[in-house]
Design a binder for these strands. Structure first.
Length: 430
RNA sequence: GCCGGGGUAGCUCAGCCUGGUAGAGCGGCGGGCUGUUAACCCGUCGGUCAGCGGUUCAAAUCCGCUCCCCGGCGCCA
């Protein structure tokens, strides 16, 4: 197993002997002097292969080596201002461990289609590696936050029989001759689990067969969901703002090098909780003052959401959506029967919805009435109704789109960039 | 699903409007070059013009259909 990495040269004195193993990103041959830019998981190292220092076989190997070949270079570390990173390895010996069958299909300047068609090769870049390291740190920080705040992680099934929301966006699968679907959300299972564990969270993929073709939609995305017993809408927003704010700040603070590679300098102060809470009806007034008329009761479209979020530096909660705009399980506000106790967290500058959630109906009668009012059959929700029959408890929960959060924090043009192998309506390969 | 943009060499694109034997740069390959940073210089190879059909003496170019990619909307995290 490899035990030393390219970034290790930073800590070495000039003249130290170092054995570098990495892939050839670029080769610049001057005949009797060849530069190789090597890459490994820790970064980039420039190797200079000079006649008279390296042996002739090494010089020849270096001048002929193809891009993305795996090479081993034995050499001496040298401070060199012209080298990226400030250090260079002067080669004594170069060995090609594994060559390439043909020219590597990717280089600077290739278009989006080629990049996505070759995602299995494109992910070798320093940029993709940087993104994935930040993603991993963010996920780890989110999990740590939940653990430190008394939540238990649970794992729920991905095969389901009934819809959480509308059936139109479910992927149908053949399940031994029966029709099953891929889950869109583990919310219902979490609602069951809180009767034992009280505060639960899950991290797993959700599937949406939405025919959307936008830069903010994936058909398979990683969903961070939580459900809290003995909690109302305001409690839920308190959890969300601390979870999102503290985890994001922590992950970004740990990622200075990766942010430099990506050319991003996210502002951490705008992530500090608390976040403003704005009612749906207030949002309509804000929009009206900007010349956008939205009839009461309809959900905000992408354009309206963009106009609304443009005026904010920090993320904010949009609360109390009209019942028509939300799924049946949202609890109606006892003080205003037209609206639900719901809240979405909207990212500023047009990045839009990152979290959706709210308080759930916990009364059996109210839930049955809402299911029937939506034209659904209560028989399809028997086990879900059972939860209201035996010691029902006030509770609230939410779902966070991990890729949406990453897209906003890193200001990514497309959500596809936030995941290693994106799945969209148009792409299921590689 | 609707609307818009696109598909020409391995890649990035020009040529299409106004029909007349397929072009450039990069990459590959060969040669040169001891301080490059997407190195540079010289040479060379490289094409089902997305597919099918039509108009025409002649189609990358005009017309019709189909497929694929990108973006926007609706929907959502």
């Amino acid at each position: 197993m490899k035990t030393s990495y390219l970034a290790d040269v930073r800590g070495l004195q000039d003249g130290s002997r170092f054995k570098a193993v990495g892939w050839v990103m670029r080769r610049r041959s001057h005949g009797r002097l060849v530069f190789l830019d090597l890459r490994d998981s820790t970064g980039l190292l420039q190797v200079a292969v000079k006649a008279g220092v390296a042996d002739e076989a090494s010089l020849k190997a270096a001048s002929m080596v193809g891009r993305e070949s795996l090479v081993e270079v034995d050499g001496l570390v040298r401070t060199e201002a012209r080298a990226p990173g400030g250090k260079e390895l002067t080669a004594l010996q170069v060995r090609v461990l594994s060559g390439v069958a043909q020219d590597f299909p990717l280089r600077k300047g290739v278009g989006a289609k080629v990049l996505w068609d070759n995602r299995h090769l494109a992910l070798r870049s320093l940029r993709v590696s940087a993104l994935m390291k930040i993603r991993a740190r963010l996920l780890s920080a989110l999990r740590r936050w939940f653990e430190e705040n008394g939540f238990t992680e649970i794992n729920c099934p991905s095969f389901i029989t009934a819809a959480v929301e509308g059936g139109a966006t479910l992927f149908k699968v053949d399940y031994f001759g029966k029709t099953a679907y891929l889950t869109q959300s583990v919310q219902f299972y979490q609602e069951a689990a809180i009767f034992g564990l009280e505060k639960v969270y899950s991290v797993q993929p959700s599937f949406r067969a939405e025919k959307s073709k936008t830069k903010r939609h994936l058909t398979e995305f990683w969903h961070v969901e939580a459900e809290i017993a003995h909690a109302g809408l305001s409690d839920m927003m308190g959890v969300v703002e601390r979870l999102v704010g503290e985890s994001s700040i922590q992950a970004l603070q740990q990622s200075g090098e990766e942010l430099r590679i990506l050319g991003r300098k996210p502002r951490l102060d705008v992530l500090e909780p608390p976040y403003e809470r704005i009612k749906y009806s207030e949002a309509l007034e804000i929009l009206e003052s900007k010349g956008v008329d939205v009839p009461w009761g309809t959900d905000l479209g992408a354009d309206e959401e963009r106009v609304l979020t443009e005026g904010f530096e920090k993320p904010f909660f949009l609360t109390h959506f009209p019942r028509e705009a939300k799924a049946f399980y949202h609890r109606i506000d006892p003080s205003d029967g037209r609206v639900t106790l719901s809240a979405d967290l909207l990212a500023p500058r047009g990045y839009g919805e990152v979290v959706g959630g709210g308080e759930r109906i916990f009364s059996l009668e109210e839930l049955v009435a809402r299911i029937e009012a939506e034209g659904l059959d209560p028989k399809d929700y028997e086990w879900y109704l059972d939860l209201r029959r035996y010691g029902s408890v006030q509770h609230a929960g939410f779902g966070l789109g991990l890729e949406r959060l990453i897209q906003w924090l890193l200001e990514l043009k497309s959500i596809k960039t936030a995941t290693l192998f994106p799945r969209t309506r148009a792409r299921i390969y590689p």
